[in-house]
Design a protein around this nucleic acid. Structure first.
Lengths: 188, 188
DNA sequence: TGCGGATATTTGCGTTAACAAAGGTCTACA
DNA sequence: TGTAGACCTTTGTTAACGCAAATATCCGCA
């Protein structure tokens, strides 16, 4: 038996294949709206955040991009008028990336089609129970590979300052010193 | 209720987060061995293929890279001595990327550590039943987003010529005209 | 045999992202 | 007050990838 045919490798490959396949399926709708994957994710995360804005660093933590990557994404989105930089009043080092009205409109325009895509290639294929189980398994893995993503739910201290959970959008609104969680590995 | 908090978006985000998190977790072991993600995937797929070789185009289909991307990956791997180009005797346009002994050794050297990583962050977290169910769900999605990946199992005709299934390594060994399946979307 | 369309690979060019370093700002502490 | 260290963002550099074009080869058909 070839050790290269280990079922664990197959499992990883299947997961990667599904992810890549879904991304590829979503792409036409997104790019028809003039947004790359990362553009869409950025705009979506801003839209989900309180005040439709996020500090550059928090955006980097949420998207998995480096901070310089975020700088350039926001450069592009700002050039297109979808996002604008807003100075942070409480910390002059920081700046917010804030969704503009045009950005919000663009986002709401793609959303129905995008949701239809997700529905038709992913969630809609599964029964309620199956989807629930699938998501539960994903969360179980997520909690191991990105432990900080679940922080911020119970502990109110500054120890939870790192990246915000993907779906929770619990970004801090500003203020105190940021005890940055040491990066748990090279980004991406 | 904010339409941006749709559970379908959360589901997609969770899947993406798990995938990215797993990749990040695997990276240290791989890069300690001098291989990038894509290097490892390339070498692994070659190792799994009959004769430890694959035509450039087939490699592109399996990895999701463009053909030019494969050219460059193989350039790098060849420079490092892990892979070599071998002329295809039956079609002088084509060339194989073939794993060298050094490539095979490198691959077998990382494999135990890599499998340990997968085990500790993914498969090992789940009961047998849960893993089975998870993989079944993934396959269900895969069959929709990448229909050609399951071809080649029953139908013996030339219609199955496109990409080989991720785990099956059923690459054609040469010969007939290649009815390339139209790309089912922009790669990656 | 000879021609035309299709296929396999490589190369030029533009875009994007990560890493490293720089510049400005904040907090803590003496 | 003043200094040290940490932090936020941006910019320069380098690497990787996709697209389009170029080149070589193959296959079908007259």
């Amino acid at each position: 038996m070839n050790p290269l045919d280990d079922p664990r490798l197959t499992a990883m490959g299947l997961l990667a294949e599904v992810h890549a396949g879904l991304i590829a399926r979503m792409q036409p709708v997104l790019s028809a709206s003039g947004l790359s994957d990362i553009d869409f994710e950025t705009v979506l995360r801003l839209g989900r955040s309180p005040g439709q804005r996020l500090r550059m660093t928090d955006l980097a933590a949420q998207t998995g991009l480096s901070t310089s990557g975020v700088t350039r994404v926001v450069d592009r989105l700002e050039r297109d008028g979808l996002v604008e930089r807003v100075a942070c009043s409480s910390d002059r080092r920081a700046s917010y990336a804030a969704l503009t009205d045009a950005g919000r409109e663009r986002l709401e325009a793609v959303l129905p089609l995008h949701l239809r895509d997700i529905e038709s290639c992913f969630t809609g294929l599964l029964s309620d129970d199956e989807l629930t189980a699938f998501l539960a398994t994903l969360r179980k893995i997520r909690d191991v590979v990105r432990p900080c993503a679940t922080a911020g739910t119970a502990t109110a201290g500054a120890a939870t300052a790192g990246a915000a959970a993907a779906g929770a959008a619990t970004a801090r609104t500003g203020g105190g010193p940021h005890k940055q969680v040491p990066p748990q590995g090279p980004p991406r």
